[in-house]
Every structure is written in structure tokens, then in C-alpha cells.
Nucleic acid binder design. Structure first.
Ligand SMILES: [Mn+2]
Ligand SMILES: [Mn+2]
Ligand SMILES: [Zn+2]
Ligand SMILES: [Zn+2]
Lengths: 135, 135
DNA sequence: AATATAAATGAAAACCTTTCTCATTTACAG
DNA sequence: CTGTAAATGAGAAAGGTTTTCATTTATATT
């Protein structure tokens, strides 16, 4: 019952919001661009405008329902937020995305920010390479 | 004699290329956007088109003379390549950029790539926060 | 030094992703 | 059921970057 998730987030329960959430929950690709979501909606018979998809994804991000990856130079990619922070490995050939968590790196980042007098608000780490399947 | 640097890189020695290189070498700001370089050229009396600035910066990147940072959501930023890899801290208020090197993080990244079967080609790490001056 | 030719440039148009505008539709509180 | 604020769709606009193509320039050759 994702209507509850929406209401909890202070968002009115509208068809576009319910459908976008459904797509994100049902898809095989955990990481989707706005365009991907838009196309998936069309395929599932929902004619929801791309502008609305962007709006809804941004609202979901603000509400903590999804998180946004900003990949090198390209378009943003969204994923359902599951509460566990992680970073990403990207295959430069097939665009496969894998996830990882590394506490050592997380700690070092905090230490570096402290050392440099920064109040760290966020970080972004991407490892680019050629995946097993592509090499 | 930056003409030599250009020739070594297989690039013809043209006025735009020489001037862009000069700007990058003389500027106080180590990190400059294409627009910044373009404006600095204008201020120094050189009427070089923005498209040329983009082209030249990309060629310099390919030649290993500069490197490009892809900052979250914004425009690209370029810096003269000095052979020493480093990552960046960015102030979300004043856009100040600081640099750091952390061997522990570098090593962990390699280990993670290996673990996941990736042949690592690159990585990008940005720490966002509020700098000393802005907090 | 003059010439030929491939490469580089400038200006403007095109591109691509994302955001905005605004008229219309919708959710939902009363 | 009604009124009202919020959400939507379509298209325009934004903002950074790349492309196109006619013109200019660097440099190898005479
Ligand atoms: Mn992820
Ligand atoms: Mn730097
Ligand atoms: Zn791959
Ligand atoms: Zn600052």
C-alpha cells in the first residue's frame, strides 16, 4: 500500500505518484533515469508527462523515498531508498551499476572533512571500470 | 615555452591553444570552468569563441595537459594536470574547492574493484560540505 | 617566400537533460 | 457535493556543451 508512503511523505495520492512508485518497486533495474521511468510508464499504458516524472522523482527524493545518483557528465539516475547508504561501481562499456559499502572509506572521508575544516554534508564516490562481463 | 607542450601533444600551435594554456598557467584560481577561461581570455583582450574554448579544453584533456572535474549537477571544471592525482572537497555555499590525497581511500577503491571483478579505469570522489569560512 | 592542403576557428544552430509556465484537471477537507 | 489548493500536461525555456559549415590559419612543400 504505497498510498501510505505518499501520505506519510506529505504528498497527495495522485495517479502519477502511485504509478511512478510502482515502477520503481517492480522494475528489475534498480537504477533508472527519469527517461527510463517515463518509458516504463508508457509501456505499462500510463500516459504521464516527462515533466511530471521529473517533478515526482524530485519530490520523492526530498521525501527520502528515492535517492539520486549524479553520474559523470550524463543524466541523473534514481533508485528506491532502502535506508542503507552505499556507493557505486559503473561499467564504462555496458553501463552496469554495482553497489558497495566500505566503512573504511566512509571513515576516511569524515576524517578528511574534519581535517580541512569542512562540515561534511554529503559525498559522492563512483568507481569506473570494465565489468567482468565486458572484459 | 608552451608551444613545445602543444607540439608534444600532437596539436598545432595556434593562438587559441597558446592563450588558453597561458590562462590556465597564470590564473590564481586553479579550478576554472570553460566559461571562466572564456571570460579571462576576453579580459586579456583575446576574442576567442566559447566553442573553441570547449574544444581546446577537451583536446588538452585528451592530451593529458588538463583534467576535468564533473561536479554534481553543475558545469565541468578544468585544472592544469600536474601528474599528481588528488580528489576534491567542495563548499556548497561559496563553491570553494580544496584538494586532498588519501592513500587509504585509493587502496580501498582498488580492492573493491578487484573484489567486484572490475578492471578499474578511473574513479571520482567529491566530498561536499560547508567550509570553515562559511559555517 | 609563395603555395597547397589539412586542420582549426567563429558564429550560430542544434543538442540534451532538466526546469518552468500556465491553462486545465484532480484530490480531498469541509 | 463543493470549493480550493495542489498537481498535471504540453510545450517553451533554460543552461551547459557539441556540432555544423563557411572561412581562416598553420605548416609542409615547392
Ligand atoms: Mn545504488
Ligand atoms: Mn584539483
Ligand atoms: Zn560491463
Ligand atoms: Zn565556503
Amino acid at each position: 500500500m504505497e498510498s501510505q508512503d505518499l501520505r506519510k511523505a506529505g504528498l497527495k495520492v495522485t495517479l502519477p505518484r502511485v504509478k511512478v512508485l510502482e515502477i520503481l518497486e517492480k522494475t528489475k533495474q534498480r537504477h533508472m533515469s527519469a527517461e527510463d521511468v517515463y518509458k516504463a510508464l508508457l509501456e505499462s499504458g500510463e500516459e504521464i508527462g516527462l515533466a511530471t516524472v521529473y517533478r515526482v522523482l524530485t519530490q520523492f527524493e526530498d521525501a527520502g523515498l528515492v535517492s539520486r545518483l549524479s553520474i559523470d557528465g550524463g543524466h541523473a539516475v534514481f533508485e528506491l531508498e532502502d535506508g542503507s547508504h552505499h556507493d557505486h561501481l559503473l561499467c564504462v562499456k555496458c553501463n552496469r551499476i554495482e553497489e558497495f559499502v566500505d566503512e573504511v572509506i566512509e571513515q576516511r572521508q569524515k576524517a578528511i572533512a574534519l581535517e580541512k575544516g569542512f562540515d561534511m554534508t554529503d559525498h559522492s564516490l563512483y568507481i569506473y571500470g570494465i565489468c567482468r562481463h565486458c572484459q
